[in-house]
Design a protein around this nucleic acid. Structure first.
Lengths: 229, 229
DNA sequence: GTTTCATTGTGTAAAAAATACACTAAATAA
DNA sequence: TTATTTAGTGTATTTTTTACACAATGAAAC
């Protein structure tokens, strides 16, 4: 048992992991095995260990659920309504992660019945206040994708411009003009065109591009403010 | 004593309260009475009570330090490096507040030797990781002031356009063209011009304006994205 | 092997927004 | 009465955003 002079809340990290399947934005959900909210779907999370930073805790969750590391993670918000967990006071620090679903090998943990990628439009009632957390995350990714090149985290390292546009449209929930999208993105000079094209597509093949991280770092150092869409 | 089956961290809320004196951006600092970091300056904060939300805790801190309530508050970030407090594991949820310094009657609390408004450019070494927290807050307010009308929280309800511009210049750290600033702000239609003018100034008196909150709410509902500067 | 289908890739003109810039008006102080 | 300081204003130029249509490509179908 651990003793303290004053009451201490429990602290968890919950992860909103977004993925993209080429069509729609997905979020990783797990089905809880035990109470509270047994059998309900929830965001994956873990209690913070004593000697672990919040970000390490989020990384640990990702490793546990999908055996993956080195992905984009950012702290989203901390949820601390006293009654949000019926067991005891639990404060949850939410982290948002962006991954390539193909890299992820979904593995249900010990406390979980199932794990899956769910379309963000098809998420029903989640355990705890996880619907609120998810809503906050969607708001954040929508706001952020316009001026930070985080979208590339959701695609393979080689991607076509139409694929990138599809991703933007899925996240923003609106369609974009193809010519203007290309013009704007290419004018940023953070994309490298490859000589390689798509193979085995029943229509004109699109060229592949890569995100030019070095070039992006240079722009950031110069204090250039990108507006991507 | 409070007992738990697993280790629980302590959780605090630290507040970055910005004020504006007409010239420069200020931040509220307190001088610590006791160890650790006795006599050093720090951000005001408090441990989170068991039945108190994080935001309520931030409000409690503001009430304690300046007997003020009903001000703009937003959650900034949660700092959780395991070693950030030498006593025990302490996770700190930082809240950023914007206030009119004139409304604030600074009152040093029991644990504090002094309390004061310090120019954000003149802040020396602070206790704990509070310099990092402050840096994060300055970054946030700079990013945010461009597209959300939070600046008004730092001014009296009646203000002149040159005062507003001075505030923007202080926060952004750059000077702005007077004519373009006026044109842009007024085109947003979120300011109401009053018939009243400045009194007792040794130059042409400027008209007072008020922030038009209702009009702003309408714009928000319509999903209008403001770009204020 | 010709046609069909689906999708990629491209440029320009018009509209809107951002920028640069200089003089007169008003209020107190000298 | 004059000097000093700051408020208030408009326009021309540049830049950015928007709207929009057709030829090229590659596999699939016939």
């Amino acid at each position: 048992m651990y003793q303290y002079q004053y009451p201490h809340p429990a602290v968890t990290v919950d992860c909103i992991i977004f993925g993209f399947d080429g069509q729609n934005l997905k979020v990783m959900l797990v089905q809880r095995k035990s109470e509270p909210f047994a059998k309900m779907w929830a965001l994956p999370g873990a209690f913070v260990n004593e000697d672990e930073s919040l970000e390490s805790c989020a990384e640990r969750v990702l490793m546990k659920e999908g055996n993956i590391s080195g992905v984009y993670l950012e702290q989203l918000f901390t949820f601390g309504t006293p009654s949000r967990d019926p067991r005891e006071r639990v404060i949850s620090v939410a982290y948002m992660g962006l991954v390539k679903t193909a890299d992820f090998e979904l593995i249900a943990g010990n406390d979980e019945l199932q794990i899956e990628w769910r379309d963000v439009e098809q998420v029903g009632d989640l355990a705890f206040d996880h619907n609120d957390i998810l809503a906050t995350a969607i708001q954040r990714i929508r706001g952020k994708i316009r001026y930070q090149p985080i979208g590339f985290e959701l695609l393979d390292s080689k991607f076509t411009l139409p694929q990138l546009q599809q991703l933007y449209e899925a996240i923003l929930g609106q369609s974009l003009d193809r010519r203007n999208f290309r013009k704007k993105l290419l004018s940023m000079q953070i994309l490298k065109q490859l000589s390689e094209k798509q193979q085995n597509v029943a229509h004109k093949a699109a060229f592949y591009y890569e995100f030019d991280r070095e070039r992006y770092e240079v722009l950031m150092k110069e204090g250039i403010y990108l507006e991507l869409v």
